[in-house]
Design a binder for these strands. Structure first.
Lengths: 223, 223
DNA sequence: ATTGATGATATTTTCGACATTGTTGCTTTT
DNA sequence: AAAAGCAACAATGTCGAAAATATCATCAAT
């Protein structure tokens, strides 16, 4: 893991990873004083990094109140999932229809990589490994990477990042029996078989299943 | 014209106006030294202003290379318009189907407001007034405000902001005969008549017409 | 003469100091 | 006890200097 790029870039990445990794609680404030100590950066770079995260929707900025991590709510989860289903299935159809050979190989390698990455730590019981989360992210990204519209892919990436926060905070409930691997394989197979509608349908099922799992867990409020 | 607000705010507005007004060439770099002289502000102020512009997509920030004005490209315009057509028509259909009475009044008032706002300055010939641009923005926002998905509305707002840059550049060509007012009225009528598909189709025509106008203008590169 | 290294110059990035403003919660006064 | 005022805290705005980095011109070696 190298610390390349400008200081702002480093702080931005660490902060994003911490939010996505569940290190900071959703809705919790991010006071500059604490961040300054934790990340060892000046207010200027922190401000810049936070601004970028806010643009992505991972944090929100209330003027004079500073920044805080996005708050999770059931309504938003439902809205988010529906939006993802709409956008991602649309982009996936495009990718399946127009993706070239490079896309196919990207999908295959990303899938293979994810399959070969251990999902859980040996001693750990609840948290997926950061490596797997990364691979999972890249798999979904690769899936859509064959689509023509760059903007659509960007939108999908942002939505997925927001969904990742939900996923992180619902992990205790993901251990229930669910063959995620099979779901992924189904999507890959249908995509490479060039069946746009069926692949999109499989993706929608995949996303909906995740949502339902989180909703079930949220019945008994965590914390 | 008063210089209200903070220094950053002033610089931000002037810079934005200069970019949108075509005073700086698309793709050209914005070195701090020059900006410092031109706008009489410190680097911190300039940095903050440029950051905000980058968040809006008017400038881009290559690390270690500074900021530059975005380069307009035909491909991006086409991609952007297609994405907008897809997203906005989807959201509009939702709004027309599910919008309540409040939504109807919002649409009507926003439309009326825009109609009553003078589009061009008296003496001026090329630039639409800031007030009209604002009203136009709020009209489109009101149109979609009846939809259920907050996320979708946010995405649509972002896309519209990105398109605004192109729209500003197309102004010299907008003087050609085109009854924008009629297009708007058509959308309003169909929306309030609760005809989702026809309203969406009218919106798509509206967006496409703008794109074609810009494309036509870009054939013979201005200036 | 071309290529590669070296150093001067220019530009960006980062930082800390300080003033200003808005917010919170406590104290004081009626 | 309620309202007004006050004090402490946190975010924001502002500036210029110092550090990091890129660009460019010069010079030496093959």
């Amino acid at each position: 893991m190298e610390d390349s790029g400008t200081r702002t870039e480093q702080v931005y990445r660490r902060l994003k990873a911490d939010i996505l990794g569940g290190k900071v609680e959703p809705g919790s404030p991010l006071p500059f004083a604490r961040l300054k100590d934790d990340y060892g950066a000046s207010m200027g770079v922190l401000r810049e990094a936070l601004m970028r995260l806010s643009a992505e929707g991972l944090t929100v900025n209330q003027p004079q109140f500073g920044f805080k991590v996005i708050s999770l709510s059931i309504e938003d989860l439902i809205d988010l999932t529906e939006t993802r289903c709409t956008i991602e299935s649309m982009v996936l159809k495009d990718a399946v229809t127009n993706g070239d050979l490079d896309w196919e190989t990207r999908v295959l390698t990303a899938h293979h990589r994810m399959e070969r990455t251990p999902k859980f730590e040996n001693g750990e019981d609840s948290a997926v490994t950061a490596a797997w989360a990364q691979a999972h992210q890249e798999f979904h990204e690769a899936l859509l990477s064959g689509a023509r519209s760059q903007r659509m892919q960007g939108i999908a990436a942002n939505l997925r990042a927001a969904a990742e926060v939900y996923r992180q905070w619902s992990i205790p409930f993901e251990v229930v029996k669910r063959d995620v691997s099979a779901e992924h394989r189904e999507i890959v197979d249908l995509a490479l078989a060039r069946k746009p509608d069926e692949a999109a349908a499989a993706l929608v099922r995949h996303l909906s299943a995740t949502r339902d799992l989180i909703l079930k867990g949220t019945q008994a409020p965590q914390q």
